[in-house]
Design a protein around this nucleic acid. Structure first.
Lengths: 149, 149
DNA sequence: TATTGTTATACTCTATAACTATA
DNA sequence: TATAGTTATAGAGTATAACAATA
């Protein structure tokens, strides 16, 4: 019983195609990154802190589309793993300045190399030119201004 | 406090770009489809049944990458909403042949028009040619043969 | 023996309301 | 008053183990 279904309508939807491609790439990521025990969201938060030391929780939420209550949980986990330090923010007494520890920095240097290799492997069907085109078209979609509610 | 972060590294990853684009399109979908109270997964299951009457639960799971225990929950919900009928499978006594009711068929005719309009709106930054290119590149990614475990 | 469908259950991710301390 | 961070909690979505009926 392996009749193949008619999926022609769904494949006309970019929402369907994009979600299926994202899940495929994420599956590769989770296999390749298992040694680091980092989910894609873990990785994206830590990478932003790595490249933006002193960043606040709120800035991370805005950049990644996460909600503040959920960010708290991620950050606590990183502190418990000794990858993250919180300092008082230099100008805003309400906020915390986030940065990686030495251990966290070493981890992310290795993890980013592994993530880049995983990403390339998951999209190895594409030529370098196609890679560029894909990135350009995807950014056109998700960087568009949000319509007013 | 709206300093913009350095996201250049993350944007080199197609996994990041693809996931962000998928979330953007799905957000539009959920706003536009609120009147139907259909999640993207609900919609994709019902659409496959609509275009493949007599399909089995297992075939849907394979086509959409869902797990059988979770499919049971979706199908029960559709039966409760009077959109789905289960008949004995003509050749396999273990399986059920799924089909939409008249009500479910009418719903999906309207819902598919709304979903196509939503999808076009969420990707309106792209020219028709870019739409084609994007679909082609995304399919190259997610239709690639799964590497043996 | 393998597969279809099912139950029960656990885990992750995401979402909302309400609170505090500071701006 | 508005915002940053936090707590608690609820709801999706996704995962595994185990079972009955049929192949």
């Amino acid at each position: 019983m392996s009749d193949t279904l008619d999926t022609r309508y769904l494949e006309t939807l970019q929402g369907y195609n994009t979600r299926r491609a994202a899940l495929s790439i994420i599956n590769t990521f989770m296999q390749r990154m298992a040694a680091y025990a980092l989910s894609p969201v873990d990785f994206s938060i830590l990478s932003l802190i790595h490249h933006n030391p002193g960043v606040t929780s709120r800035q991370l939420c805005d950049a990644l589309g996460l909600l503040p209550p959920n960010m708290v949980v991620f950050l606590k986990q990183f502190e418990k793993r000794h990858w993250l330090t919180k300092s008082p923010h230099p100008t805003d007494g309400r906020a915390m300045a986030l940065a990686l520890t030495a251990e966290g920095t070493q981890l992310m240097k290795k993890a980013e190399k592994a993530a880049s290799a995983s990403d390339l492997s998951a999209t190895s069907q594409l030529t370098p030119k196609e890679q560029e085109t894909l990135a350009r078209l995807l950014k056109k979609i998700y960087l568009k201004p949000t319509p007013a509610p």
